[in-house]
Nucleic acid binder design. Structure first.
Lengths: 332, 332
DNA sequence: ATCAAATATTGAATCGTTTAAAAGGCAACA
DNA sequence: TGTTGCCTTTTAAACGATTCAATATTTGAT
């Protein structure tokens, strides 16, 4: 087999010094003469030396790798968050290993195990929340951990997420202020904290305006575009009447709008629609979608920054909540 | 400092055997008695042993990590490709380290260097193509490499990409068949092979229908949604008349449609628009976008599979071209 | 010129796993 | 009893970088 990479030993031999000296030269350590250092750096450059991070990680017990587990990197929400994570990782000299959980608890657990085997320095996780033993285990193991886009009220774990209650509240308030009285909430599964919290916000807004909450107007399910369509079709076929829709996310909202348009129901005249997330495409549909903007890129970036703080010794648990903002467009 | 992870040595001590025996037990190697193996596995499980991949990689000279460099993981095209890569990586027992090049050659080179330092087993790269010395260097270093979504005619490098000439050809032919005669091509920069090849297809279609090619109808630039809008605004302000638009990708096409709608130009009556990629949102705009569907997920998946073949000894260079398909919608 | 102090360099061990080679144990057979 | 061969286990070295302790070299003060 061809020898592929140059080692400290190779450089040491040529420079006529010890491996140790080479190491110190390349790592800007003290206790080395300018002359020797210069010579070594020159040789290293000529040979195109690249530090073996594998060996370095083993010895230093620090991999400079952060694990990232999220539901689906192709989802417009997560792909923006991921981008923020990736950008921050560059800034702080880390690399990221990405694993999609596909919203499956088993896969999430598997991903955690693989990443621990990789000896990642820390983990950014957006848990499925079907169960939470894996998060509890991570806490028990004292793995540097930041949860994003999720909330665990009762667990001492670092978090960066959006203000989901406010999101639900301002979206619903806006619908009511525009005249809607019977507001369908097309939600995700309630084991996920954002779904629960947005529902809370929804209820709070109804209460504020003196509208009674009704279970009949709550639809819970998956959160793809087709699911939004399905939800509307189902509501209509069940004869549920509504003049507003608040969807868990923009994908659902867009699917819902599609279904409404197909039935010839006019938006916003007959039914007003509000989404959540403010993905890029919400702005360009017809009608364009009123939505609650979430700081996706920032969420990823801030989560990474918080993880770095943890890696640097921060002990106190931080649960950061990012502000949200209503973006009014044509659908209301 | 608390000792975090259990090692082979820990297990060996408890089991009363050598480290080597433990290693063989856990790696399903022969030459071990059933009794010893069982005992060791039991202890390993009790102690929650996790193999240290760092150490293993160092010794075996194989990291089971593949590097992925692409322009922008938040772009709907790349995020689908990435998903295919990620899915395949799971299937073959690898992990991926993702780095965005941000369409910047310097960042691409930097990413390559970092990944080589990480001793990745192979690299999946969608190069910026401003220059190609880095790709040439990778070939020279014999790094297992698969290029995706790009084509290097003159380099012996494995590739998986879409049939870009056909894409340009069928898109343009379709526009002509629907009656367009003056077709604006809103393209990406021509140093990128897909831009060049789609332009070739565009010209071939014009030629087939006896329409003269004109430089005036070619606009070259960045490929975000705003750029599509800008391109149309510019063409109109320059007084260039056109009745069809073929955009390099759907983002550009959607931006172009937005600009046309704002000017009160009817689609498809006055101007017909075709995009490329078939991202999710092309189907839900109004009018929905006719486009050339590309197998994005498959591209990622196939690229990974090809890389695996290379890692397993495949020597012959393969340049795989994935078929494309016209999806006719309301914009034509 | 001499000794102490400061600076530069080296040797050896280590991180945790894997591999090659050596050795130990046991049964069968002459 | 001794030899052969098979199966199991151990010993030792290796992967490449880093660190600690030890040694070598230079500098400065007297």
């Amino acid at each position: 087999m061809v020898k592929k990479y140059v080692t400290l030993k190779d450089i040491a031999k040529i420079a006529g010094v010890s491996v140790n000296t080479v190491s110190r030269a390349l790592n800007n350590k003290p206790d080395i003469s300018k002359k020797t250092k210069k010579k070594i750096l020159k040789i290293a450059k000529e040979l195109n030396y690249r530090k073996d991070f594998t060996a370095s990680s083993l010895r230093r017990k620090e991999s400079k790798i952060v694990g990232v587990i999220l539901a689906d990197s192709a989802n417009p929400f997560y792909s923006e968050v991921l981008k923020g994570i990736e950008a921050a990782s560059k800034e702080f000299g880390y690399n990221i290993i990405l694993i999609n959980s596909e919203r499956d608890y088993e896969q999430e657990v598997e991903a955690v195990n693989i990443l621990l085997s990789r000896r990642i320095d820390g983990l950014l996780l957006s848990p499925v929340q079907e169960r939470q033993d894996d998060v509890e285990e991570l806490i028990r193991l004292r793995i540097p951990l930041v949860i994003f886009a999720r909330h665990f009220e009762d667990l001492p774990v670092n978090e960066v997420r959006s203000d989901d209650i406010k999101a639900g509240y301002i979206a619903t308030s806006h619908l009511i202020e525009r005249g809607a009285k019977k507001i369908l909430m097309v939600n995700g599964y309630l084991h996920k904290s954002p779904a629960r919290l947005r529902l809370t916000g929804y209820k709070q807004a109804l209460a504020k305006y003196g509208i009674n909450y009704s279970d009949k107007l709550l639809i819970v399910g998956d959160i793809g575009m087709e699911d939004g369509k399905k939800a509307i079709d189902e509501a209509l076929s069940r004869g549920i009447s509504f003049d507003g829709v608040f969807a868990y996310n923009d994908m659902l909202a867009l699917g819902a709008m599609k279904a409404l348009k197909e039935k010839g129901i006019r938006i916003p005249e007959e039914v007003k629609v509000v989404g959540c997330d403010d993905i890029l495409f919400s702005a360009i549909t017809t009608p364009s979608l009123t939505t609650v903007k979430m700081k996706k890129y920032e969420m990823g970036y801030e989560a990474f920054k918080l993880l770095i703080k943890v890696l640097r010794g921060k002990k106190r648990i931080e649960k950061k909540v990012l502000d949200v903002e209503l973006i009014i467009r044509e659908s209301t």
